[in-house]
Amino acid sequence: MNAPLKLVISGPVGAGKTTFVQTLSETEVVSTEADATEDIGKATTTVAFDFGTLNIDGQELHLYGTPGQDRFDFMWDVLCEGALGLVLLVAGNKPQDFLHARHILEFITSRNPVPFVVGVTRQDLPDVWAPQDVAAYFDLPVGQVLGLQATEAVSARNVLIRLLESQLAKETV
């Protein structure tokens, strides 16, 4: 039995981090939602973390979703300690958030260089950026950027599988 793998889910407000963890977790999600007092396009926001677990091919995964606002950047540090992978989510219909997403990615990977994939959420919407266009924006290989719907288990799971594959590839080098 392998030890659980700690994976962090980060990204700007409204990217779908909490939904992603809720969709995938096979155990009750520990979430820390508080009523939002600023206009962020939704009623509540994560103030500490979301925690969920799942099993893929016998490997237990622990998912930690972070808050999205910069004022909670200390939680990015706290949650990324000992993490073995990062999923950076961006809402594909909010290109105005891409710069912030890149800032979060740089903040995390400069302090803790972990393997990561970028997930472009809201692929069900009409005016959404395609993953390959987001890959170009982030200057990343297309294989490292995937489209998904955070509400939909198969596409969300595929993001984790891609992350695990990239990690295995790294370990065998």
Binding site: T32, A34, T37, V47, A48, F74, M75
Partner: peptide, 29 residues
Amino acid sequence: IDGLPIAQSFSDNTDANRVAAMAATALGL
């Protein structure tokens, strides 16, 4: 409760934005 400062009084140059966010995180947790 989502971590924005409303009122503060500190003797030193403590960063109120930071403490506000941390207080909200602590409360949520």
